[in-house]
Design a protein around this nucleic acid. Sequence first.
DNA 1: ATATAATACTACCTTTTTGGTAGGAATTGC
DNA 2: GCAATTCCTACCAAAAAGGTAGTATTATAT
Lengths: 131, 131
Amino acid sequence: MKISTRGRYALIIMINLALANTTVSLKDIAYNEHLPIKYLEKIMALLVKSNLVKSIRGKDGGYTLVKFPNDYSIGEILRASEGEIKSRACDTDNCEKQDTCPTIKFFDGLYREINEYIDNKKLSDLIKEVK
Amino acid sequence: MKISTRGRYALIIMINLALANTTVSLKDIAYNEHLPIKYLEKIMALLVKSNLVKSIRGKDGGYTLVKFPNDYSIGEILRASEGEIKSRACDTDNCEKQDTCPTIKFFDGLYREINEYIDNKKLSDLIKEVK
DNA sequence: ATATAATACTACCTTTTTGGTAGGAATTGC
DNA sequence: GCAATTCCTACCAAAAAGGTAGTATTATAT
């Protein structure tokens, strides 16, 4: 029930890209944020794969956003980096009361709330406070 | 960002206690729910330690609630079993921007929402659907 | 052209958390 | 005293989290 650093680092990366108008290298982000570049690299790969950022290879390459900051929801960034935000599935084969289980219903409702919250917040909301 | 089975099993235990008017043994709960008794034992220990349930030792012993089902919030049950529901702390010593970090602020807001949601739901809300 | 600086890919690794299991000691009703 | 229960301690395996290392590939500046 805890957000891992992976999702948080993904947000930090996105904030860095949003604040820069130019292409930014991972090296710069890692340096600015004092975060391990090799780990950021793995997280960035997830963001690229989900088409949240565009990569430019070769010398003077780096990454840029593909949309305006207010067109990114925090939700899509977290889902790209952490995977679906939902309750751990229970072993449905083993459980005959899948459909009526009150705990499953409860968690479905909770995660609906969470996803709504993170989808309504935009990347631009986060950078307002930084500027 | 996923609720583990520990919290879910804790809820299941509490639902079982709420539906029974008598003392219930762990063996019965494990049997009814097809869950491993030894694992439930560990979860139950957390619930007892947090004073959410009362244990009766010896033959014909078991567990009972200490309050009415509508006096238990789901939040207190989940916190007893899973620990505090909050974002993983970042290494504050290492980070000089602790106070202004927009990601921390964001997650604080998210977890405030989550805790509000789980505190407003009561154990009695879950058993309504079962009865 | 070529050195350089960047991303992309693959593989590994350590620590923590999760989800258990095993065995026995202590307690209590009958 | 026996049986049925909780309590306690220790252990364990699998998965996830949080990295690290090395190399291949690409593209640009010069």
